[in-house]
Amino acid sequence: MSSVTVTTWSLEQTSPADLLPAAAPDGDVRIVRSEVPSPEFSRFLYASVGGDIRWTDRLSWSYDRWREYLERPGVETWVAHDRGTPAGFVELDPQAEGVVEITYFGLLPAFRGRRIGGHLLAHGTARAWDLAERWSGRAPTKRVWLHTCSKDGEFAMDNYLRRGFRLFDTKVEEEREAPAPGPWPGAYPGARPGA
């Protein structure tokens, strides 16, 4: 298997005032918190959003590992719905000392390019800033951070910067190149069975 050079950028906000809003998309787009931990639903979102951009680190997780992760106090999944259909998600993972990581964020391929992403990222980041209000015993959020890489969508970095995130670290590594898994073979746009 060949290797590919992957650049990973880490970005942060250190104040709620850093967050820059995004225009709401046209149509009936709603963002709601998935309050009942559901390994099945979270795995669906992960595989469907990340399948064509090679998210693979959680594909081998067992049901129990998903459940344990999702049931950790403060872990939240916020889901954008377009006319009732899941369009994308943002996952928040609180860490020590008032830090919240946006561990995953993205849209299913059919919903990209429709201004939903900026709206969802702004909403999810705002929920990272006010996370302690929903979880007793949590320290107020002092920092929100995330990472993106050169395998992510072409507009990902621009979206993060337009929402007020600032770059604080860059790493370049060689990774084994793997085919995009998709939620099932041939599911992502441009894929052909047997290709």
Rank of each mutant, 00 (worst) to 15 (best):
M1Y: 11
V4T: 13
T5H: 08
V6S: 04
W9D: 01
L11G: 01
E12G: 05
Q13I: 03
T14W: 10
D18Q: 10
L20I: 12
P21A: 08
D26R: 13
G27T: 10
V29R: 04
V29E: 05
V32R: 15
R33L: 09
R33K: 15
P39G: 09
L45W: 01
G51K: 03
T56L: 12
D57E: 15
L59T: 03
S60Y: 04
Y63F: 14
R65S: 12
W66P: 02
R67A: 10
E68A: 13
Y69M: 08
L70C: 01
E71D: 11
P73I: 09
G74D: 03
T77R: 00
W78V: 00
A80K: 02
R83S: 15
G88Y: 00
G88A: 07
V90T: 08
D93A: 12
Q95E: 15
A96T: 13
A96N: 11
E97T: 13
V99D: 09
G106I: 04
L108A: 08
P109S: 13
P109D: 13
F111C: 03
R112L: 10
I116E: 01
G117I: 04
G117D: 03
L120R: 02
D130Y: 08
A132H: 15
A132I: 06
W135Q: 13
A139I: 12
A139S: 14
P140Y: 10
R143P: 02
V144T: 09
T148V: 09
C149T: 11
C149Q: 07
S150H: 08
D152S: 12
D152P: 02
Y160N: 04
R163I: 01
R166F: 06
L167A: 08
D169W: 09
T170D: 00
K171E: 13
E174G: 05
G182V: 03
P183Y: 06
G186A: 06
R192E: 12
A195M: 10
